[in-house]
Amino acid sequence: MSAANNIERIVTSGTFELDGGSWDVDNNIWVVGDESDVVVFDAAHTAQPIIDAVRGRNVVAVVCTHGHNDHITVAPELGRALDAPVLMHPADDMLWRTTHPDSEFRSVEDGFVLRAGSVEIRALHTPGHSPGSVCWFAPDLQAVFSGDTLFNGGPGATGRSYSDFPTILESISGRLGMLPGETAVYTGHGDTTTIGDEIVHYDEWVARGH
Rank of each mutant, 00 (worst) to 15 (best):
Ser2Ala: 08
Ala3Asn: 09
Ile7Met: 10
Glu8Pro: 00
Thr15Ile: 10
Phe16Tyr: 14
Leu18Cys: 11
Leu18Met: 15
Gly20Ile: 09
Gly20Glu: 12
Asp24Tyr: 12
Asn28Ser: 07
Val31Cys: 08
Asp34Phe: 07
Ser36Pro: 01
Val38Tyr: 02
Val39Ser: 11
Thr46Met: 10
Ile51Phe: 02
Gly56Thr: 01
Arg57Ile: 08
Val59Pro: 00
Val60Gln: 10
Val63His: 04
Cys64Leu: 01
Cys64Pro: 00
Thr65Val: 08
Gly67Met: 03
Gly67Gln: 02
Asn69Lys: 11
Thr73Ser: 15
Pro76Ile: 10
Pro76Thr: 07
Ala81Ile: 02
Ala84Tyr: 03
Ala84Gly: 02
Val86Met: 01
His89Asp: 14
Met94Asp: 09
Trp96Pro: 11
Trp96Ile: 07
Arg97Tyr: 04
His100Trp: 10
Asp102Gln: 14
Phe105Ala: 07
Arg106Lys: 14
Val108Asp: 03
Glu109Pro: 02
Asp110Cys: 06
Asp110Val: 07
Val113Pro: 03
Leu114Gln: 04
Ala116His: 10
Ser133Lys: 00
Cys135Glu: 00
Pro139Val: 03
Val144Gln: 08
Phe145Glu: 06
Thr149Asn: 03
Gly153Glu: 05
Pro155Arg: 07
Ala157Ile: 01
Ala157Phe: 06
Ala157Ser: 12
Thr158Trp: 02
Gly159Asp: 13
Gly159Cys: 05
Arg160Gln: 10
Tyr162Thr: 01
Ser163Met: 00
Asp164Tyr: 03
Asp164Thr: 04
Ser171Ala: 11
Ser173Glu: 12
Ser173Pro: 00
Arg175Cys: 05
Arg175Trp: 00
Leu176Glu: 03
Met178Ala: 11
Pro180Cys: 02
Gly181Pro: 01
Gly181Ile: 00
Thr183Cys: 09
Ala184Met: 11
Val185Ala: 10
Thr187Asn: 05
His189Lys: 14
Val200Trp: 04
Glu204Phe: 08
Val206His: 02
